[in-house]
Design a protein around this nucleic acid. Structure first.
Lengths: 185, 185
DNA sequence: TATTGTTATACTCTATAACTATA
DNA sequence: TATAGTTATAGAGTATAACAATA
């Protein structure tokens, strides 16, 4: 079984980027069709899958990594804020956080100012796991850039950003983990 | 509602590339993290979504385009062969083709040599629709390459292919529309 | 009356395994 | 006995709406 794919729906995945719509496009050998769009999408899909594989040993999925990263950069955030930031419906966020809390990687504390809200924090184990995940991400990045010189890597990023603006990729990032809901920013 | 995403699972999408695992990665503003992996995945995701949008007016999804393209390049193929080529489980292929046949874009004829197999063909309407889809794909590609010179575009493809080999992207293509099943090639 | 987090429900997609009709 | 296509079933994943507590 040489080519199993992650799981989920089926549009396109990515190390960080979420899958847009599942089963978006199949692989075909018809006309080679060497286009920028196809090449970027295909490569991005493969990269995402590979990243998920590298992260699996830690028991994390890319979204867990993204989630923990966000919490780490803003200890005490509320679920609502996180949902909005990551564009995930609040009800989905509940499930994602439940899983992480059950594994004691994050914890929901009480917010002293607003008793409705939860204050999200990383546990010590969570911080440790996150650090390991970062190491994996760095390793992955090095693997991807292995055949690129520093200049080539910089140029690749530059060219990609020029393509990105054409399809609304801001500058820093922007993917979108969830699909509908939460778009009132 | 400025940022609705296709639908499906949620890993990563692509204009052609299928979604690997849904909800793969969320968008986060945490550390900018300007990496090759993240940038390609994110951009590929956005491209896939955009392509799906452009195709929507034709009533097609990216996978329909891929499917019809394959049939066009090999009139008379069997569903089994198509399933294998696109790495989709035969049972999914049935549903996809049912939809296209119902809209009279393709038809299942009898295979004179093997009465178990179906011979897939495009109808005249299907050929017409496929042509329009090709026009959309070309337009999309031009949109993406708008800010690139011919040389830059060529170099982008070259650099991408060098990254691609690191994660197993052959040369021509290879995505994978489905997930499990069908990997005995 | 609005908001935070949660739960419940319905829907879509997908995978798997039967099943038929051929071979 | 194996294969092409189909159907049926069960399982993920998700979106939506309803809800309790608090503001």
């Amino acid at each position: 079984m040489p080519d199993e794919a992650p799981t989920g729906s089926s549009l396109q995945p990515g190390p960080w980027p979420p899958a847009v719509a599942d089963g978006v496009v199949p692989a075909t050998d018809a006309p080679p069709f060497r286009s920028v769009g196809f090449t970027i999408s295909t490569t991005g899909y493969a990269i995402a899958r590979r990243f998920a594989e590298l992260l699996a040993p830690l028991g994390l999925e890319p979204r867990d990594f993204a989630l923990m990263r966000s919490v780490a950069s803003a200890e005490g955030v509320s679920q609502h804020a996180l949902s909005k930031q990551m564009r995930v419906a609040p009800s989905r966020m509940v499930a994602f956080l439940d899983a992480l809390e059950q594994r004691e990687l994050i914890e929901r504390r009480q917010n002293p100012d607003d008793r409705r809200a939860r204050a999200l924090h990383l546990t010590d184990a969570g911080r440790e796991t996150l650090q390991r995940a970062f190491a994996v991400a760095v390793q992955h990045e090095q693997e991807l850039s292995a055949e690129l010189s520093g200049d080539e890597r910089a140029q690749l990023l530059e060219l990609l950003s020029r393509v990105g603006v054409q399809v609304g990729v801001p500058r820093g990032v922007h993917p979108g983990m969830g699909h509908s809901a939460m778009a009132d920013e």
